[in-house]
Each structure stands twice: as structure tokens, then as C-alpha cells.
Design a protein around this nucleic acid. Structure first.
Length: 825
DNA sequence: TTGCTAATCCCTA
DNA sequence: TAGGGATTAGCAA
């Protein structure tokens, strides 16, 4: 019997080979290569302590031979060590050694140790393969874990095992290998996970009580310490790591592994700093619809999908770890800034006295800066020394619902359309979050805007800011803006203005209107503003809340009227609905172009001119008009100036928009009154309209010309914009044709009160005239701007004469207006 | 009680 | 039908 033969061989050795090692049991010496020296040890040998000791002694005595396999324990790592005999041998051999006698006892095949009826018994007698067998099996396994049938047959013959046994052995060995590999990786992952969790907890703790590394005081958001920045970077990295590890661990464990052992409040990690900071701010907020407590609002980043914002901004996080960290850090900073800004906005919108004090002149609300600095911690750092503050708040009812207003504000195109006189240019530069559940709640985006006051004496305000939208309750929304220049590295060094938390809180009213509370708060370099406009700007009447709300009310009223069926009309020509729409669109373009010509925003590339004999307060700019069907081609010259006039804004507006009085200042009128051909009302105030004028005293040259005029007025200011247009082209427009091909160059006037206490809509017809003295209450600041085609060849050179002509035209027009109004008095 | 090993059962490609 | 996963039985620590 072959098995017997094997037994005979196995007893042949004398156990001469030995290896080093300390453990008595595990380190039984044997020749790992098998061969004549190998010796399966018997169970009886093992059970004798004396022998064990003797063996150890022998080993220490430096018995030769052997592979010196001294495996200590059964660490899975052992499998990674290669080597002749395989690392896991010792223990196995230990088993085999002990069962060696069993093997012998069993005799015959392992499948049928006691069976003589030919039927395999349900339970076999326990046995293990001999060390030699295992050794051979291991050796082959190392070379080929998947032997084919032939190899297995070969092996089974050689080892006197059944082919089934060989097959099972390989099967089990593979399974074992896999299990141990998994277990090994799992343990590494678990360790890593524990480590990360510990680090995370310590960071949480650190962020819960942030301390300024310099002064030891509580750290503030606007003043992020280097250490905190490092913590944030580290935190972002750890979060990513943790997610990854948990995903892997979950894969191996076969069940999802939570990144947080206990459920944590959603904002405790990410908003640790902000949270504390906010709670400091919460003192004594007035009641009302809004919850003034930030903690009461769902403000945690996970709620806003910021952590998953990689889907919104796919460029960075997933693809590049380093960039991802930066990006994630930046987003986290933006979010904190946005949350702080939102909190501040709500506070400014809700709190009345002593934060806001109503001024005696004009009833405007003036910010009490002492109170402000007492209750609000600056979230974008301290005001630059040479800057001045401008803060304003205005509340008004607007015929728009909160959702529509929010949508308008969050869409840069709609926003610009809503405030055409105030926004020269705007764009959304980055969307950090689009909001939750298909709404704008939680939407966070980076925006760029150029804000304007229509005067060449007031430079455009260029601002980069975060805009953050939050729903505070059913029908209650807030949209806040805050400059990001302090935390953005690639901001131009020169920014003349920074917006502190500004924006609006809008609450739906039952009658379809919304109650809008607007707060504007900015710090800016006053030095670049002409003295004439400084009081106005500083009072917040140039860029302030009053102007935003007034414009919003006017525009929404216009939209409401246009959408309603009962359009008040008094035009003398039959204009179709589509014609009205086309005409309004054309007028809108005209007014937009007018504004762009006054303020030299980057919409057009104007070149500023300085020429002798040009009044220093008249700014002349030129640009080439090429390939724009909406303009005549050639050299376009824009001249604009602003002057103070001792008449009320209302009176000035009424004078300039009156077609009957036009001959007093407009050379296009040919010295006679003009006639209104068409009139489209844009609001309840008759001053808000688009009209088409025709000179009564037409000469042959101008017989084909009409004047398209748009006027608008609200409590913050008024506009009269006009442009000569071609009669055939206007016919097309009035019949609903495309207005884009009507070439026009607009001119006109922008009127604002000359300072605080002089609201446009709050005065009587004649009450505003300040007795003719300069600088007194009730005067107006008038901006006159002309855009004129000086040469129809775009490549032509601009002549000094044409510049002087335009300069003279503008000065002459101002003189005529002054004279007309004075004689009128 | 736990871990290891040989073997079995059952499912799937 | 071979191979692999799940499971079981026997044993040792």
C-alpha cells in the first residue's frame, strides 16, 4: 500500500536538521525542503515538555541544516515573505506533526478511514496532511495556485493523496489566501480609520474653540489664522481619506461603514468657528418672521450639497488631489463667509434702533456705526484706513413674489436686466452650489459686477463678491452679497470698493406683493469720486439700498403692467402687442447703451480723450463701431458731463421729457415743439414710458427721422434717454419686427438729487428749487451725455474739431437748460 | 470560545 | 462540470 510506504519513509529520518527560533511549539526544526532529513514529529513528542525543552536547547546549540524558519505567530504579513518553504509552514507542520500519527492510524484513504462497506461515512476521522505533503502542496501552490487536473493527478500520486484531497486542498488554500489578504487589508484600513477618526476628533475639538494664535482670543471668521487654515486643509484631506477608507472598509466588511461613529450634529465640524461666532452675534435680535439664530437655520454644508458640490464644479475635486484640497478649502471658506454674511444681513435687516437711526432730512435710515461694530464682527476684515463707509437700508413693497425675485437675483443676466441703470456689467464667475432640491435655497455663487452711478464723475465700482441665497421660512428668502477680495488671491491689488454683507430679505405678502428690505453696506475710496457727488454717494443714494429698491419697484411695476391685459396706452398710432414689445426692447437697448456710454464700463472699449479746449469736467471718449447692426458703423464719440442745477430733480425731469419744451435745448427739434407719435406706459407714473417723437418743423434732411425716447423716474433718480431713429426702421419695429437691426446712438440725461434729504418723489413740483444758490437742498445733479457718429468710416482719424464740436454741443445744451429753467422761474 | 483545516454542499458560468 | 462561496466537523490553544 502506497500509504504505508510513505509512513515508512516518514519514520526514516532522525530529526537532525534544526532552525533557529524561540517558541518551542512553533519552531520545531525540520528540513523545509523535505528530502531525506525531514521528520514528521509525532504527537507524543510534542506533548512532552521535556522534549520540547530539549529541542530548544538543541536548536540553540546551533544544530545545522534547515531553513531556519522561525515563524513567530501567524501574521498575515508572513505570506508576503517569499522564501523557499513558505512562511506558514511551522504552524501547519505543528498540526500535521501532531496528526501525523492520526494519519498513520487512519490508514487507507482519508475518505474512508473506518469504512469497509464502501459507503463514505458522514464524519471522517480527524486527520491532517503530513508536513511533507503540505510542503509539496505549498511549493506547487506558490508556483501555480491553480493547478490543472494533470498537475493535481501528478501531485496526488506523489503525495499519496486522493485527487479530491489535492483539489480541496488547493481550493481551501486559495480561499484561505483570499480571506487572509482581506483580513490583512481590513486591519490596515481599520488602523488608518482609527487614526483618522482620532485626528478628526482633535480637529473638531480645536475648531470648536478656535483661538487666535497671536492674541489668544477667540478667532474670528474674517481673520483666519494660519494655524486654522492648516487645520482646514488637513480637515479636508482627512475627510476625503476617511470617506475613501470607509468605502474600502465597507467593501471588505460587506456592509456600509459610517464615517462618523456616532451621529453628529450637521454643523459641528464644518461650522465650528462660524457657529460660535454666530452665537456671539445673536444677542437681542428682534422678533419677526426670520429666525435670527443661525443655528436654527439649516446652514450646515451637507444641507446645501456643498460637500457634493464636485458635481456642480467638476473641475477640481475628483481629478486632482492637490487642487481638490485647495478648491475644497476655498469653498469651505466661501461658505463660511457666506453664512457669516447672511447672518449679518439678517441682523441688519431686522434690527432697528439703535443700529439704524432715522435721519431728519429725507427720513432715510442712517447706520449707527458704533452700534454696528458692537454687535457685528467684521467678516471681511477691517476697513482700509483711506476708505469711507456707506450704509443704507430701505424697505418697500414690490409687485413680485419672493421666488421670482430670488431667481432674478441669482441669474446674472436677469439681475442686469432688472437694474439696467445700476449694473454696467455682471457675470457669474463660479457656481459653488446651485441650491437644494431644485430650489435656490443654499445656492452659492461667485459673481463679478460693475456698478454705476450715471455720471462721468463717479467711477464704476468693480466688485467680486459671493452671492448666497437662503430660504428662511415659507415665502421668506434672503440673498446676500459679500466681497471676496480678502480671501481671494487673484484679486487685482487695486479695488476701490468692497461690499460688506449687503442684499435683501424678501417676504411674500398676501396681495401678491413682497416686502423687500434692502441693505447696502460698502466701504470705498472716496478720493476717486468727484466732490460734487460725494455727499450723494456717502448718503447711500448713489449705490445704496434706496436706489436698488426704487429701481426694483419701478421695473416690477413695468413688468406687471406689460404682462397685464389692461395696458394703459395713449398712443395715436395703432401698435400691435408685438410691436409694443419690439419697441420696448429697442428702448431697453437704447437705455443700456446710454448708460454704457456715460460710465465707461468695460461693456464697450472706450478710449478716453484729453484735448485742449475741452472742458475738464466733460469726459470725451471714442470707440469704433464695427459690425454691430444696432449701431451706425464708424467712429462713435461719447461726451458726458455732470453739473449741479438749482432745480428739483422732478422739475428738471419734467422739463427735459416734455416734447413741447424740447426746442429749448434740443437741436434736433429744429426750433419747434415736437409731437408724440406713440406712447407706451411702463408704470403708473406718467414719467415711466417709451415714446416716439417727431419734430413738427421738419426740414428735408430730417424728414426720415424720429426720436425714440425712454423716460423713467423713481425716488432715487430719473432718466431721459433718446435717440434719432429711422422712420422705415421704426415702422418695422412697431409692427413687431426685430429691433436688433435698428441702428441708434443714444443721448440723454440722468438726474439725481444733489444730496441727502432730497428725494425725487418726495417733493412738490416747485418745492425743490433751492433759491438758485449752489449746494443747497433741493438741487439736482444732471448728467448730460451724447453719443455721436463723427465719421462713418471706422478707420478714420478723429479730428480735434469734432471733439471740440461735441464738447461745445454738450456745454451749449447745459447752458440752454440752465437758461430755460432760470427764465422759467 | 476562537481559529484553523479538511471536507461538503450548493450555486454559477 | 469545474470552480468558488458558504458551511460544517474536528481539533488545539
Amino acid at each position: 500500500m502506497s500509504f504505508g510506504g510513505f509512513l515508512d519513509n516518514s519514520h526514516g529520518g532522525d530529526g537532525g536538521g534544526s532552525g533557529g527560533g524561540a517558541r518551542i511549539v512553533a519552531d520545531i526544526p525540520y528540513n523545509i525542503r523535505g528530502g531525506p532529513m525531514s521528520q514528521p514529529l509525532s504527537k507524543s513528542m510534542f506533548n512532552s515538555p521535556g522534549l520540547s525543552l530539549a529541542l530548544q536547547t538543541t536548536m540553540e546549540g546551533g544544530g545545522g541544516g534547515g531553513g531556519g524558519v522561525g515563524e513567530i505567530g501567524r501574521m498575515p504579513e508572513s505570506y508576503e515573505t517569499g522564501g523557499g518553504g513558505g512562511a506558514r509552514r511551522s504552524r501547519e507542520e505543528e498540526h500535521e506533526s501532531r496528526s501525523g500519527s492520526d494519519n498513520m492510524d487512519g490508514g487507507g484513504s482519508g475518505d474512508d478511514p473506518d469504512g469497509d462497506d464502501g459507503k463514505p461515512p458522514r464524519k471522517k476521522r480527524y486527520h491532517r496532511h503530513t508536513p511533507q505533503q503540505i510542503q509539496e502542496l505549498e511549493a506547487l501552490f506558490k508556483e501555480c495556485p491553480h493547478p490543472d487536473e494533470k498537475q493535481r493527478l501528478e501531485l496526488s500520486r506523489r503525495l499519496c493523496l486522493e485527487t479530491r484531497q489535492v483539489k480541496f486542498w488547493f481550493q481551501n488554500r486559495r480561499t484561505q489566501m483570499k480571506t487572509q489578504l482581506e483580513r490583512h487589508e481590513n486591519s490596515i484600513l481599520r488602523q488608518e480609520n482609527d487614526k483618522l477618526r482620532a485626528e478628526n476628533m482633535s480637529i473638531r475639538e480645536a475648531m470648536r474653540n478656535p483661538m487666535c494664535s497671536n492674541c489668544g482670543g477667540p478667532a474670528m471668521i474674517g481673520d483666519i489664522s494660519l494655524e486654522e487654515q492648516h487645520l482646514r486643509i488637513e480637515n479636508a484631506r482627512l475627510k476625503d481619506e476617511l470617506d475613501r477608507v470607509c468605502a474600502l472598509a465597507g467593501k471588505f466588511l460587506g456592509r456600509p461603514v459610517s464615517t462618523m461613529a456616532p451621529p453628529m450634529p450637521n454643523s459641528s465640524l464644518e461650522l465650528g468657528v462660524g457657529g460660535n461666532h454666530f452665537h456671539q452675534l445673536q444677542g437681542g435680535g428682534s422678533g419677526g418672521v426670520l429666525s435670527s439664530s443661525t443655528s436654527a437655520l439649516p446652514l450646515g454644508p451637507p444641507d446645501f450639497g456643498i460637500s457634493s458640490a464636485s458635481s456642480v464644479v467638476p473641475s477640481s475635486r475628483a481629478s486632482n488631489t492637490v487642487m481638490g484640497m485647495d478648491s475644497s478649502l476655498e469653498r469651505s471658506m466661501y461658505l463660511e463667509l457666506a453664512l457669516a454674511a447672511m447672518d449679518e444681513l439678517v441682523k441688519l435687516a431686522q434690527t432697528d434702533e439703535p443700529l439704524w437711526i432715522r435721519s431728519l432730512e429725507g427720513g432715510r435710515e442712517i447706520m449707527n456705526h458704533d452700534e454696528y461694530s458692537r454687535i457685528v464682527t467684521p467678516c471681511i476684515g477691517l476697513k482700509p484706513n483711506d476708505y469711507v463707509s456707506e450704509a443704507s437700508r430701505e424697505t418697500g413693497m414690490v409687485i413680485i413674489n419672493s421666488l421670482a425675485l430670488v431667481e432674478t437675483l441669482m441669474d446674472s443676466n436677469k439681475w442686469a436686466e432688472m437694474f439696467p441703470c445700476m449694473i454696467a456689467r455682471t457675470s457669474t464667475t463660479d457656481v459653488i452650489s446651485t441650491g437644494m432640491g431644485g430650489t435656490r435655497n443654499g445656492a452659492l455663487q461667485l459673481m463679478h459686477a460693475e456698478l454705476q452711478v450715471l455720471s462721468p464723475l463717479v467711477p464704476v465700482r468693480e466688485v467680486n463678491f459671493l452671492r448666497f441665497c437662503k430660504q428662511h421660512a415659507e415665502g421668506v428668502w434672503a440673498v446676500v452679497d459679500v466681497s471676496i477680495d480678502t480671501i481671494r488671491e487673484n484679486t487685482p491689488a487695486f479695488m476701490s470698493c468692497r461690499r460688506l454683507p449687503s442684499g435683501c430679505v424678501v417676504q411674500d405678502m398676501p396681495n401678491g406683493y413682497s416686502k423687500v428690505t434692502w441693505v447696502e453696506h460698502a466701504e470705498y475710496d472716496e478720493g476717486i469720486v468727484h466732490e460734487l457727488y460725494r455727499p450723494l454717494i456717502r448718503a447711500g443714494m448713489g449705490f445704496g439700498a434706496q436706489r436698488w429698491v426704487a429701481a426694483l419697484q419701478r421695473q416690477c411695476e413695468c413688468l406687471a403692467i406689460l404682462m397685464s391685459s389692461a395696458v394703459p396706452t395713449r398712443d395715436h398710432t395703432a401698435i400691435t402687442a408685438s410691436g409694443r414689445k419690439s419697441m420696448l426692447k429697442l428702448a431697453q437697448r437704447m437705455t443700456d447703451n446710454f448708460c454704457a456710454g456715460v460710465c465707461a464700463s468695460t461693456v464697450y472699449k472706450w478710449n478716453k480723450l484729453r484735448a485742449n479746449n475741452v472742458d475738464e469736467d466733460v469726459r470725451v471718449m471714442t470707440r469704433q463701431s464695427v459690425d454691430d447692426p444696432g449701431e451706425p458703423p464708424g467712429i462713435v464719440l461719447s461726451a458726458a458731463t455732470s453739473v449741479w442745477l438749482p432745480v428739483s430733480p422732478q422739475r428738471l425731469f419734467d422739463f427735459l421729457r416734455d416734447e413741447q419744451l424740447r426746442s429749448e435745448w434740443d437741436i434736433l427739434s429744429n426750433g419747434g415743439p415736437m409731437q408724440e407719435m406713440a406712447h407706451i406706459a411702463k408704470g403708473q407714473d406718467h414719467g415711466n414710458c417709451v415714446s416716439l417723437l417727431r419734430a413738427s418743423a421738419m426740414n428735408a434732411n430730417q424728414s426720415s427721422m424720429l426720436i425714440l425716447q425712454e423716460t423713467c423716474i423713481d425716488s432715487a433718480g430719473s432718466l431721459v434717454v433718446y435717440a434719432p431713429v429711422d422712420i422705415p426702421a421704426m415702422h418695422v419695429v412697431m409692427n413687431g419686427g426685430d429691433s436688433a437691426y435698428v441702428a441708434l446712438l443714444p443721448s440723454g440725461f440722468a438726474i439725481v438729487p444733489d444730496g441727502p434729504g432730497n428725494r425725487v418723489g418726495s417733493e412738490t413740483e416747485n418745492g425743490g428749487v433751492g433759491g438758485g444758490s449752489g449746494g443747497g437742498a433741493g438741487g439736482s445733479l444732471l448728467t448730460v451725455a451724447f453719443q455721436i457718429l463723427v465719421n462713418s468710416l471706422p478707420t478714420a482719424k478723429l479730428t480735434v474739431e469734432s471733439v471740440e464740436t461735441v464738447n461745445n454741443l454738450i456745454l451749449c445744451t447745459v447752458q440752454k437748460i440752465k437758461a430755460a429753467l432760470q427764465s422759467d422761474n
